[in-house]
Amino acid sequence: MLASPFMHSAALASLLAAVACGIVGTLVVQSRLTFLAGGASHAAYGGIGIAFHWSLPVLPCTLLFSLAASLLMGALCLRGECRDDSYAGKVDTAVGVLWAAGMAFGIILVECTPGYAGELMGFLFGSILTVPGDDLAVMACFDVLLLALLGCFRQGLWALCLDREFARARGLPVKALFLLLVGMTAVAVVMLIRIVGLILVLALLTIPPYLARSFCNSLYSTMLAAGTLSLLFCLAGLTLSWHADLSSGASIIAVAAAAYFLAHIPGFFTQRMRKN
């Protein structure tokens, strides 16, 4: 298994995805943006459809489409915060609609394109074993971009995630920071689509940070631990898929989900014991 060149590139892809997952996943979980991240990942299929229909490069096309869709959702969320509760409900629905509409748009474009569309299954459920070398280079660039953005806007993002109301009161540009975070989410989501597919991306984005923060005491150590966990999940999932001949994306998520449930078992029993 270790000798296979597929595995080498898969391991490298896992490492690159883990960086994005650690940084953005932690920020997404802490600022309660999971729903928006889900919207960004599913709407990204519209970009895949455009790339497929007009024979454009897939990764940039997906990124641009996902970025546009998620920034639109982010802008709607910001408007929702300024208004009353009834408007916030409308925003919630609008994000859901964009989530589905982007995907439907992609499916229709693919169906309108003559030829075999089998490879598109890779975007739905991930194809870590067949990530081309070019895509690995692009993923590495994305990681550098995410690290640079985090380094530059470190404290602003920290404040945004901890207490948005207080950050606003201190005069921090909360709206710009929020849209920056949404943009970073779109970048990470597009990277992770390669690994686990757009349907499963939410799990890989949220489970590692969720588990990591239970034993970390700072945002940055949580990011590091979440990245490590996501790398471990990817490698364990790959091993599972290799030996059991299962789909790689689903195996990775299965491992992550199993870890999530296992982590809850001690808490479940202590709660039961307390009640008794």
Binding site: Q30, L162, D163, G171, L172, L219
Partner: peptide, 21 residues
């Protein structure tokens, strides 16, 4: 949020700048 009390208190001195605060 994974932060210590001291880190949270330090945030009180935040002011806006080109790096988002």
């Amino acid at each position: 949020f994974p932060a210590s009390v001291l880190d949270m208190v330090l945030m009180g001195g935040a002011s806006p700048d080109r790096r988002g605060g």
